[in-house]
Amino acid sequence: MRVDGPQANATNEEHVANRFDLPNLGIGLGLRTVHYGHILEHAPDVGWFEIISENYMQTEGKPLWFLDQIAERYPIVMHGVSMSIGSSDPLNWDYLREFKALRDRVGARWVSDHLCWTGIAGRNTHDLLPIPYTEEALRHVVSRVREVQDFLEAPLVIENPSTYVEFSGSTMKEWEFLRALTEQADCAILLDVNNVYVSAYNHGFDPDEYLAAIPYDRVVQFHVAGHTHNGTHIVDTHVGPVVDPVWRLLGHAHERAGGASILLEWDADIPPFPVAHAEAKKAEQWIGGVAR
């Protein structure tokens, strides 16, 4: 694993490094339009930016103009919401071609999407819908991840989503499915520790059991985010500060991974850039000297 910054001598020799040789970019932020002006004017000291791929697809105008400027100054990672890797519909090759072209345009360090599906029969719900964790679904998703990786000539990074239901017919836990998928398809993991926390609350499992099952040599990135607690359930709204139990999960997982890129997602009631940036930098307090 390539490690940027002063952590090379950190006490993590026993930890596995990611097997894809993807760099640790340090602490980054999700790129949001309301922050374009601040970023271009003040050039804040941020490790990297993650974009929602679809915001820069099907457009040739203003969004790309800003992205090109920012990609000249910062490492970019692409994070998608519409690959629909878990759908029983055929893969959308028009989408994948445009996706690959965008990756090449901005020099994205890696690309990710979610362990989910977004629609069927040609219709898109634009939501991250849950997959039944069965052998049939596993075979299907493994073959699609392989196909996409062959096309991209790069590892696909798969993120665990927040979920609100589980299927009665599931025969595996999500972490068992994720582990089997990533090993059989040889793909990478974006571990969203907030999503682990949200799903654990919604379904009543132990988040530490989830973390214990992750193959950390495949983890190339972490997500943290705020959420909305409704008492009966938690919704992954990406709003507000990250709660301490989620930071604690990050600390544990980050240590097990021997360090990997960390990213804060903030998508509703987005504050001024310095506020979001300060929230992301809180990660430093939870990861013991392993990030830059």
């Binding site: 949001r32 929602i52 609100y164 985010a225 919704v235 997602e265 509703a268």
Partner: peptide, 14 residues
């Protein structure tokens, strides 16, 4: 002032 509101991977509040 062109305001594009981007799409996100978040879930809307209930």
């Amino acid at each position: 002032e062109a305001f594009v509101h981007e799409r996100a991977s978040a879930t809307p509040r209930n």
